[in-house]
Design a binder for these strands. Sequence first.
DNA 1: GTTTTTGACAAGAACGGTTCTAATCTGATA
DNA 2: TATCAGATTAGAACCGTTCTTGTCAAAAAC
Lengths: 132, 132
Amino acid sequence: MEKYRQLNIKLTPQRLAILDYLRDNTNHPSAEDIFKAVKKKFPTMSFATVYNTLETLLNKGGIHELKIETGKKRYDYDVTPHHHIICIKCRKIVDLYKDYKIPLPDEITREFELINKTVEFYGTCRNCKKRH
Amino acid sequence: MEKYRQLNIKLTPQRLAILDYLRDNTNHPSAEDIFKAVKKKFPTMSFATVYNTLETLLNKGGIHELKIETGKKRYDYDVTPHHHIICIKCRKIVDLYKDYKIPLPDEITREFELINKTVEFYGTCRNCKKRH
DNA sequence: GTTTTTGACAAGAACGGTTCTAATCTGATA
DNA sequence: TATCAGATTAGAACCGTTCTTGTCAAAAAC
């Protein structure tokens, strides 16, 4: 796959499995989610490999790290700019592809060189709403 | 102080010290920041008390919890709605008092009952920029 | 005014996610 | 085939947070 090649890293079987899992599971999995899934294919898989691979991919810009939970990080294969809606009950995360132009006051732009922004919406999804 | 009274909790000396620290340190301190500072006044202070108090204050709506870092939570005495600009180098957080109206597409509002939103800007502050 | 009850505090253990360490393995290159 | 850098592994260490247990102090009940 083209994206894989662009990463310009050694594509070991473990790394491929991690990448494939991320590509096929767009529900923003955590390191543990990835570990559990990939361990089925590679029983000797360790957390170190998951974290090492994630860091390598991060540095190459192949994935995004979501800091939406405080307890654990979640990962996103989709690196095109987008925002998220998070269900505060089940922690489901839904993507939102919209480019919001949000003006910043001058006193901020004088003080900060802006790099990027995230907009996060919190609410309850229909499922969690039903079972009140 | 008026806000303290409105919290409607038993204002023990330890809790007062924590509240005072939060009121006087608007740099969004972490639990450890609070612990270290208040321990000077109460050498027997424990983390349990800090966390217990923070949770009580949270439940009473007296403070806000910022989930900007993944590793640790940070706390905000200011509960009026506002957003943040975060320096990716020194993790300084600056407040931004602006009420952005951000429209959500219908397919989202059908699926989610929106509760609130956060807008976070990331960049480098002038200080960190200087020492490139 | 003493006893009882309630809730806050303290110390440290436990926990969960992440990072580090040291040893081993793999695979590309010479 | 030998070399060597980099990847993998298992488990220890780490850090922030939560939990547990016992103690203490203030308020309520008697």
